[in-house]
């Protein structure tokens, strides 16, 4: 069971990306890799969902993308959290906490 990657709950991907970027700017693969590592392989994000999400977030002004060279000397688009993105992360985290607490209460009832 633990070997199988879990499907992300609808709508949480953007929150995870925001959280990942809160530490440092990363490129697309970097984000996917970090999410995978931190979740100990539970969440595997493929570009089919990552890139649309990044495009949406860039439109919404939550992240800002710039092309830089990577450590492997490749050009990649690095995403960086904006002030608006930081605020969004905060509110989404609070929201998520409330939801989890509520769900837990229901499950434990």
């Amino acid at each position: 069971m633990s070997d199988q990657p879990t499907d992300l709950i609808q709508g949480t991907l953007e929150m995870l990306i925001l959280k990942t970027l809160a530490l440092a700017p990363l490129h697309g693969y970097g984000i996917a890799l970090r999410i995978e590592q931190v979740s100990a392989g539970a969440f595997r994000v493929n570009p089919g969902s990552l890139l649309p999400a990044l495009s949406r977030m860039e439109r919404a002004g939550h992240v800002k993308g710039d092309w830089h060279a990577t450590e492997n000397n490749r050009r990649a688009k690095y995403y960086e959290l904006t002030v608006k993105g930081r605020r969004a992360l905060q509110s989404e985290t609070e929201n998520w906490g409330r939801q989890i607490a509520a769900i837990n209460r229901i499950l434990e009832a």
Partner: peptide, 11 residues
């Protein structure tokens, strides 16, 4: 989009 995807694959 292709370029970003290529770089993703490259990494």
């Amino acid at each position: 989009i292709d370029e970003e995807l290529e770089s993703f694959i490259g990494e």
